[in-house]
């Protein structure tokens, strides 16, 4: 296996790993807040569940990026490409936007969504506002995903 291949695989691993950690922390935090509300009022379960799902998307974006990257370099499909070191670096760097933004936005979205759980707890009729506010954070994860994918597709192999 070439050094380039190792670097590209590290990139794929980081995308899945960091974005996944961000999501796990975010979803876990909202889950804690949601459990607090449900322990007092179980009827609010469905409303807080939507908020809990929101920070989970970063992990999916990381997974998607990793799969695309691995298929581009032929690890998925069985035709592994001989990558030069510079190509390997290019793939690694291409994976970084979703890896880093996924980590941070997952945690931040978790905090925003947990605050949204507070809105649902107090004023269930304004649940949608909490969802919208938490969803705004998603924008930046989507932008990072877009950039990562564009870069991965445009690296010459």
């Amino acid at each position: 296996m070439t050094n380039g291949m190792v670097l590209a695989i590290i990139g794929a691993a980081l995308a899945a790993l960091l974005a996944g950690i961000g999501s796990a922390k975010g979803v876990g935090l909202v889950g804690e807040a949601a459990a607090g509300v449900v322990s007092v009022d179980p009827s609010k379960f469905s409303k807080v569940l939507i908020l809990q799902l929101l920070p989970g998307t970063q992990g999916l974006y990381g997974l998607l990026t990793a799969i695309i990257l691995l298929s581009r370099i032929g690890v998925i499909g069985g035709n592994a490409v001989d990558l030069s070191t510079s190509q390997g670096w290019a793939f690694l760097v291409a994976a970084l936007p979703i890896a880093i933004v996924g980590l941070i936005s997952g945690m931040v979205q978790g905090k925003t969504a947990a605050a949204g759980v507070g809105i649902t707890a107090k004023k269930p009729e304004h649940n949608g506002k909490g969802i919208i506010m938490a969803a705004m954070v998603e924008t930046y994860a989507i932008l990072a995903l877009l950039i990562s994918i564009l870069m991965i597709y445009n690296i010459e192999v």
Binding site: A34, G36, V117, G118
Partner: peptide, 9 residues
């Protein structure tokens, strides 16, 4: 986070 959400409820 759970306690604060419960308190809000």
């Amino acid at each position: 986070a759970d306690g604060v959400a419960a308190v809000k409820a």
